[in-house]
Design a protein around this nucleic acid. Structure first.
Length: 528
RNA sequence: GUCCUCGUAGCUCAGCUGGAUAGAGCACUCGAUUCCUAAUCGAGAGGUCACGCGUUCGAAUCGCGUCGAGGACACCA
């Protein structure tokens, strides 16, 4: 809709201009402060310029009026225009607000180590990534979602060791000497129970079985992670194995050598990342020939860029922030445009329950489990709360507040608005088909405002996605729901003179709520 | 020490490509149900946008500085 307005204005005005929404919507639907910036150039007062410019739009049918107020030029859309948009949107239903962006994007997120269950911090990145993908796809972006499985490296061996020791502790007479570092938590014991059933208790006798237990345990943990994700309706298109990629190390290494991006010193191989904005050079291969974690990411990003997407988005935990520079440096050295790589950081989450810190799960080894929280408050509430805040700011929330089923819980508030509209239709005995062709003319100010609000979903989605700030969508839906609740209390719909018009307007609101909620992965209830 | 993120109502946070009188929710006070679900709505109260300087027609928004909070600074992943 905004696009139609911009295109229309461009017919009459040259150059760029800012189009915004007036604070007070009695002024109009859109406004521009253009006259202020022209004032200097034209040596006239902004008020006079605005008055003159307004006249140019008299003949445009999409505007009911164009008025100059205190230097701002305000555009009010016509009923015909709004009506046409509404009819189409209601017909489109879940396809409303679809876009025609065509860019391809590889979106990598979560990528939690397969050494244990998902905790609440992972869940935030997971929900954010999943929703970003849903919104992006709706806008037409070709998005592939990917999970990078860190199945190489010490931590996998440590998983095997932990299972072995837990098995010895539980099923043998061996007195276990616990090392300084190993995975704690009941889930390791659960895992050793399963290992015992599958392999027999002998598996715990010999340390030479560690590699076998490692690889087996990693697969089990990946299953667990997938199950955790599924609880929040999150699925990935690709899982990429770090271990398998390592076979391609030689190729990536050759590339780096050819580009003079690496050097040897003290028996190690270093990446000259400091030449590309990193603080210092980084080791990629250790003295003993084992590649570092960075080497894995070099291969992975080499692989990603060879698949030639238009853009690459990684969602990482905020603790990886220092890591961005070196990966970008690597991408640059590999001969790709590092500006195509974008990293979104997902900040930590602090959970409260009844005002007190949420109890850590002993099962998990002192983490808060994603599965525990979902069992307690449900997937909808979890998704919602993560989507109300920017991903890169700290988030604190109280699970008890999300369990309350009243106005203090915004998710019910939005769902109630949607349910309410369905109930109104039921009461009226009419269906959407009955009212779709009603003409929305001579609407009062309230009706027109709420209709307009429901119609701007496309620009809200676009803004949310482009700025990677999904809280804008959440905020919008809350506003739309609030406006509708207000409207409902003020206006009787069923049985009123213009019942059909008001039903159509309600159907429009429901459409936007439904599309918005579905993109957030939240159920739009028809009855509560 | 260096770098990031942040500082807005009692609390949790929006707003930040500079724009009209700084917003929402919660909490608090008062009010609304013979009438489409009161899981709702209305009204009230609540602000030095951390502080200072600068940029300009205009700054919560941009720049510099100060103070404060959290985080990152591996040959671990």
């Amino acid at each position: 809709m905004k696009k139609s307005v911009i295109d229309t204005i461009k017919k009459h005005i040259e150059g760029d201009f800012v189009l915004e929404k007036p604070k007070d919507n009695s002024f109009g639907h859109y406004a521009t402060p253009l006259a202020f910036s022209l004032a200097k150039e034209l040596r006239k007062s902004p008020m006079i310029i605005a008055d003159e410019l307004c006249l140019k739009f008299d003949d445009e049918v999409i505007f009911e009026s164009t008025t100059a107020i205190k230097g701002y030029i305000n555009f009010k859309l016509s009923d015909d225009f709004l009506n046409a948009k509404t009819t189409q949107a209601i017909k489109d239903n879940l396809n409303f607000a679809k876009g025609d962006k065509n860019e391809s994007i590889l979106l990598e997120y979560v990528s939690a180590n397969p050494t244990g269950p998902m905790h609440i911090g992972h869940a935030r990145g997971a929900v954010f990534g999943d929703t970003l993908a849903k919104v992006g796809k709706h806008l037409g972006y070709k998005i592939t979602t990917e999970y990078y499985v860190n199945d190489a490296g010490n931590q996998i061996e440590m998983l095997g060791l932990s299972v072995l020791l837990a098995g010895q502790d539980r099923y043998t007479d061996v007195k276990v000497n616990w090392p300084e570092e190993y995975y704690r938590g009941e889930y390791i014991y659960d895992l050793c129970d399963v290992a015992k059933d599958e392999f027999g208790v002998e598996i715990f006798n010999d340390k030479s079985n560690i590699p076998k237990l490692s690889s087996w345990g990693k697969d089990k943990m990946l299953e667990l992670i997938r199950a955790n994700l599924a609880m929040a309706d999150i699925e990935f298109e690709n899982f990429v194995s770090e271990k398998e990629l390592f076979e391609l190390w030689d190729k990536s290494y050759e590339k780096l050598k050819d580009r003079d991006a690496v050097f040897e010193q003290d028996g190690k191989i270093w990446l000259k990342s400091s030449e590309c904005g990193d603080e210092k050079d980084r080791v990629v291969v250790r003295e003993d020939g084992r590649p570092t974690y960075l080497a894995g990411d070099i291969i992975y990003h080499d692989d990603k860029f060879q698949r030639s997407y238009d853009r690459y988005i990684n969602i990482w935990g905020a603790d990886h922030h220092g890591y961005i520079a070196r990966v970008k440096a690597a991408v640059h050295f590999l001969g790709y445009d590092e500006n195509k790589l974008e990293v979104i950081l997902s900040q930590m989450v602090a959970l409260l329950k009844g005002g007190e810190p949420y109890k850590m799960s002993k099962r998990a080894g002192n983490f808060i489990l994603m599965s525990d929280v979902i069992e307690e408050i449900g997937s909808d509430a979890l998704r919602f709360v993560f989507l109300t805040k920017k991903s890169d700011t700290h988030l604190e929330f109280d699970v008890d507040l999300l369990k309350q089923q009243d106005s203090s819980n915004p998710i019910y508030y939005i769902q109630y608005a949607h349910a309410r509209i369905n109930q109104i239709f039921q009461k009226s005995g009419k269906s959407v088909d009955d009212i779709i062709d009603v003409n929305l003319d001579n609407l009062d100010e309230d009706s027109r405002n709420i209709l307009f609000l429901a119609l701007i979903l496309p620009e809200v989605l676009e803004d949310s996605f482009e700025s990677r700030q999904l809280q804008k969508l959440t905020e919008y839906l809350r506003n739309l729901a609030a406006s509708y609740h207000q409207f409902y209390n003020k206006h009787k719909i069923v049985g009123s003179e213009n019942e059909e018009q008001l039903l159509k307007l309600s159907a429009m609101v429901a459409t936007s709520l439904r599309v918005g909620l579905s993109l957030m992965g939240i159920e739009a209830k028809v009855k509560m």
